[in-house]
Design a binder for these strands. Sequence first.
DNA 1: AAGGTCACG
DNA 2: GACGTACGTGACCTTG
Length: 948
Amino acid sequence: MADKQHLYLVDGSAYIFRAYHRLPPLTNPEGTPVGAVYGYTTMLWKLAEDLHTADGPTHLAVVLDKSSKSFRNDIYDQYKANRPEPPEDLRPQFPLIRDATRAFSLPLVEEPDVEADDMIASYARAAAAQGWDVTIVSSDKDLMQLVGPGKDGTGAIDMLDTMKNARIGVPEVEEKFGVAPELVGDVLALMGDSVDNIPGIFGVGPKTASKLIAEHGSLTAALDSAAEMKKSKLKERLIEHRADAELSRVLVTLKEDCPLPIPLEDMKLEGVPPGPLADFLTAHGFTSLLRRLDTGAGSPSRKTDLNPAKQENAGTKPAEAGTGNRQPLPDMPPVDRTAYTCVQTADVLQQWIDRAFAARLVAVDTETSALDAISADLVGVSLALGPNDACYIPLAHGGSDMFAERPEQIALDTTIAMLKPLLESDAVVKVGQNIKYDLNVLARHGIAVSPIEDTMILSFVLDAGRGTDGIGGGHGMDELSVRHLGHAPLAFKDVCGTGKKAIPFGEVPLDRATEYAAEDADVTWRLYKHLKPRLAIEGGTRVYERVDRPLIPVVARMEREGIKVDRAALSRLSEEFAAQIGTLEKQIHELAGEEFTVGSPKQLGDILFDKLGHKGGKKGKSGQYSTDQSVLERLAGDGAEIATKVLEWRQLSKLKSTYTDALQAAINPTTGRVHTSYSLVGAQTGRLSSTDPNLQNIPIRTAIGRQIREAFVPEEGNVLLAADYSQIELRLAAHMADVPALKEAFEAGEDIHARTAKEMYGEVTRDTRAAAKTINFAILYGISRWGLAGRLGIEPDEAQAMITRYFERFPGIQKYIAHTLESVRERGYSETLFGRKTWFPRIESKNQAERQGSERAAINAPIQGTSADIIKRAMARMMPALADAGLQNVRMLLQVHDELVFELPEGDVDAAKPVIERVMAEAALPSVKLSVPLGIEIGTGKSWDAAH
DNA sequence: AAGGTCACG
DNA sequence: GACGTACGTGACCTTG
């Protein structure tokens, strides 16, 4: 017994991911995020403490994943393809995990191109073979294959889940999988794994898989048995997807014969030398552990009989992570603009850069000559490392007056060369307020800023919709600063002025520019410290880490790509439209009997209803007649020619001013392309919005409008490819409200509006289908009898009867609406399938119109928002997926809510289509498994119009 | 700056 | 009995 050896193998990579998600977001004195490191340190501490206890380690090693590729990628290129990037504030912790391991003087196994699981398997088998017991510190189900009792000189292998403090032996594995550990691989091969992207057999989950393997004793036997099974979905699937299962079996097999870089004997645990450990604990401010090390109480370097669970620092217990127990904000001194530094020499800059590396977190802000990131020139950069600890680095000040003396500044290319390693370093988090802007500015100087955090996005994820009138719900820096820090920063117009007297930022004197620019970085740093801890507490981590933040560099790149428009074609259209508008205007004036401004709804209303005496004029609260499309169409239907002409005039004016004229003006003279700007916080539901110009509302519904789409073209030798989610919101409604009839229809690829018509009316005609389509959309938007009546041209009573019938046929919808509203009233917010919140502060308003408006928006938000989450996830995965497929020349250009537009070489179309389709169709996985398929429609052509 | 209108999903 | 009537956007025009 005394000489029984017991090897503990710590699955370090798996541990830190779990620790990251379960522990509060601690930071060390330098501001580095160290929550996962702290969890890891306490775990090693506990393990080391158990040295020589009955079941404790005599040998111990940590195994980490070194790279993401392994032999499995050679067999199956989709292996782990859905894996999201690690969260950005975890990335700088990876090197610290290694530091911690070294501080404990523990052996660290890290082999390139070998997965940690395989390394663990190889060590475990080698140790067991020479009679050692082995404990794998992990809860990874793949590793459960290794568990087994000791016998005939072979050691036992079990597992330890330190977070649940649970041993996993043969009985636990059998309970979980329903089979012995040797057969776990067979079960895994049948059920697949969406996180690692192991296919398994589609439609077979853990239960069916266990049952089949338990019954037949092996994967092959289970698959062979399909031939004799009764006809069923399962039978079909087993036969059809047999190859998937066999591939999966290979993928889940652990490689147990990897060469062992460190001999087993060298893993002997002899106690922990206190020196390096003390240094490490001090550096990261782990004071409670340091105290224990100093006093020797519970120190891992000597045996102890204290109960480790009882000495845990209260603030680190996972159970308390979500209950508001967070690291208190360090008291921040008030903003002091005189404390900022203007950096004018390379020596001083180098000091700031060195300090930023040490801090591992820096707030960054760029100042430019204009608002548009694609063409604006860089004027200066500011950095902040702490409250009032900020600087401004001017780069292009005083350039406009060639006779005046320019202030002392470091040369632009010198500064860029010095900043690049910092801004690109994996070990330093860069925080920005709308950092997409800075990404674009710096990308033009060859800097790919990473990893990043964004206070604007943080605010959006936490507080979308929270503002009400007078309080302000925006996510701009000035507003956030006032709301969260009680401080109004210098406004841009205070330093640059407004209107004609405005000067470019490069002309602002350096002292003033430093106050403004460094303050922005300072405030950003403070906002980050305030907002980031709220994420874990309020449940925003998943949306922020998995949806919105990964999207920032993706959207930035789309903005930089831009899209080509055919200027000559637009110019021709402008001329045509101008001529027709002129003709129409004359005719309208004749019909009116006088000249007036056709574009003035006020004048038009007076002409139509007072002068010409048309009936049915309705004045709104402004005392003005309404002359909108529906009113004019009614008049036109009654035979009023002037109404027809005005409608035509309006259509053409709209197309000319908003599109054919404006788009020509939007062509960037340098790139020759049109670069929109996407707002990631524009829509409360989580959708993007597009401005300057808005490329999300280019005409498509009329033939005349589609001519504008024809002007969006690819470069020579390329095509445009448009990929749409088909009926995504209705599909999501069918899933979320659990409507079997609709789900079946989508599964079978039916025409969903026709199916609705059949359910509602019993027969499908053009009219019933059209009505059904209207109702389907009405449902998504929150319905009222009057609204539906207006749309369908029927009486409110009839509309009510239709609504009632709809709810009878699809009772899930009514339940969904009721539950959604109930939950919003109770919690104040709605939630998407991915956990994105939208707040509805007026859901209980006493004002009925206001309240009902909130209710309709609240019914719609989870559906619209989930759709937005899904396409965002697809976008974040798209470029890596295309690159993996060897498609380097495909460019993603535009997003229009349920559509992505790409530009690619003609020869790449056949290869790109399936990749794009797969990424879009699988975008909800692995977080959310939908009960309806996501349909994708793809078209290509020599214009955006032709691609539809 | 606000209101009306209309382009899109 | 009044409120106003489908969700989410952005751009342009006129008017005050």
